[in-house]
Design a protein around this nucleic acid. Structure first.
Lengths: 195, 195, 195, 195
DNA sequence: GACTAAACGAGACGGTACGTCACGTCTTGGG
DNA sequence: CCCAAGACGTGACGTACCGTCTCGTTTAGTC
């Protein structure tokens, strides 16, 4: 027997919030951003639109939270001491994530939505873009202190060379995004920045 | 008596088409993709929605056409014989276009919309992405034949390193997109691909 | 098989309008003003809310139209030459209508809604109250010209004495509204106005 | 420092009740029934909805209590011994109340709301309609015992003729509700019931 | 004079309906 | 007779209240 469905009064906020995020993440991954509406999320979460609007300022912001709730992203960036191997494995893993899991389409759609959804743009920058950039930059800075990378290179630019190139093939597709691309990309970039 | 309100009968297709594209371009540039609706374009073009739906399969496709109609893009890529100077000037000009003209926001919003609009995605690839990539690749191939660039580099990858990095800062903003970035970017990339 | 449900495009305005009024009238009579929402009417008419809002400015105005559409009111006021018999039969018929048919509750609810719905108030005055008052006044004026009623009486006031008394027992119920009341009412009033 | 905002704990019931009624009366008189919501009353009374729902079964019932709390109606019906003068002054005073004070609109809106609010209807009957009818009937009965009014007249019907006529012009406006109307009304009615 | 128990405020909750907007489809009437 | 004008059904938007319920706080009444 169902212990839920307790009438119409208040439910614990955390419980409702979890239901909403679970429904949002599932809907986003299963059907994509085009089918992602606040109405649908409310319906499938058994929540009310009012509640959703109280906590999220736009459907993009809700979608992002739903995605994070679904994937429990770990955000690990190993530092083995060999920067070339580390960058290579990270970029290749990223390409794998974008192409072999639903994350590719979801990230693309979130980035797309962010172009016209300021709330999502802000959330995406603060909770996705900036932390990931920082990890990569830190690893490269440690490699520089070990003498593996040139001293006159702005690693923020390198981040755009590596990950930006991948996003380019994801968001403005023309050439294939695959492991071979990742390998050649890293090789080209490293040739320009190694000490 | 009102000289507008030209009745409901047929007008020459070319004239109507031009009105629609002009209205679409103006609306896209003036108010952005969020305000860009087929309804608005029809209203401001003095055309009917039927006519628009007859010629464009999605609002994204219409927006793209409207943008091209508005900017009459030339798509020149000078080949002075000095590949380093040419790449540098092209990338810097591109960054300037993205940041100092309305084109930046428009391109970002079109690319964003394309993530959930297959018709726009197709049109964008065929009429924007692919031709621009080809130009850059051709210039680099000529430079290689002059012995200026390495023989073992896939220039398609280099395109992603250069322009993809710029799009990255446009679409997933975190670090500034400016001339200094362009200069450092080109320097890093060239160091990895020059002969 | 159902011949309706013809897709989403336009339907003839008259057909849609008729569906809406029929649904509105039925809903009003069957379930009353409390259950009468534009959403319900749209649903049961198979019409869209947009269409309803295009033609009616408030739910009260729609309800009134729906009521008239349902009852095809005839608005007859016989003039047999005997004013006392005519007034009596009219008032008694009115009381019968209010108490023995759904009209009583419907009229009460419409009058109630009109207190906070200016559009309904206007429509009710122009299409219900005023014409009905005029009929009664005209009959009494003819009776006066036949010498049956006093010359110094304002028949508009008499209308309020007769029908207003009935509405009073309908809208602010305390004493029963029935045939005996109608008879005594008419007797009292006539005693004060007959020549 | 703010002396209000006394925390959330318990307050004396009488104090809370008074705040609620005061806020309800003010809101009803200032903005009318359309703006009268339990949410608004709770907000402006500094009370919680829970408390309101504990004491009133519908917003109509609350509105009625708020109105009585605001006007402290006296419900006097002088009996000078001259029934004709007394009825005239009472009806004229009633018309004055309805037209020259906020009471007219408020009473109209309460009566209107009562058509779809059973709790309000009951309260209105018991606390407003019935007592006022009784006063008038009693005065007329005393006049009859003094030989001023006919013996065969049901004074309950006379009440509807007099006050019902006024409510008619209030609730279903078509002809003006003013002193002249009151005077003619009383004259017509008295002519039919005086001994 | 501490200690409950009740009543309070606050306000989130699931809902319903609101009135609006844009979508993509379809009928109609004007040129 | 074709097709531009625009009304249609659909569905999502974001908001306002509804009546219910949880929670933490404060007072009033008991020991």
């Amino acid at each position: 027997m169902d212990v839920r469905r307790r009438g119409r009064g208040r439910r614990p906020a955390a419980e409702v919030r979890d239901d909403i995020l679970t429904a949002a993440g599932k809907l986003l991954i299963d059907e994509g951003m085009a089918a992602f509406t606040i109405e649908r999320v409310a319906l499938e979460a058994g929540a009310s639109k009012t509640t959703i609007y109280k906590w999220w300022r736009s459907k993009g912001a809700l979608a992002l939270d739903g995605y994070f709730h679904a994937v429990e992203s770990t955000l690990a960036f190993p530092d083995t001491g060999d920067i070339e191997a580390d960058l290579s494995s990270q970029v290749r893993a990223f390409v794998h994530l974008l192409t072999e899991t639903p994350a590719g389409r979801v990230i693309a759609e979130l980035a797309g939505q962010a172009q016209t959804d300021p709330d999502l743009a802000t959330a995406l920058r603060e909770r996705y873009t900036v932390p990931r950039r920082r990890l990569a930059v830190e690893v490269m800075e440690r490699a520089r202190s070990r003498g593996q990378l040139r001293g006159d290179v702005d690693f923020e630019v390198v981040v755009d060379q590596l990950w930006g190139a991948c996003y380019h093939r994801l968001l403005l597709p023309a050439e294939p995004l695959n492991d071979q691309f990742a390998v050649e990309l890293v090789r080209n970039v490293l040739r320009g920045i190694r000490a």
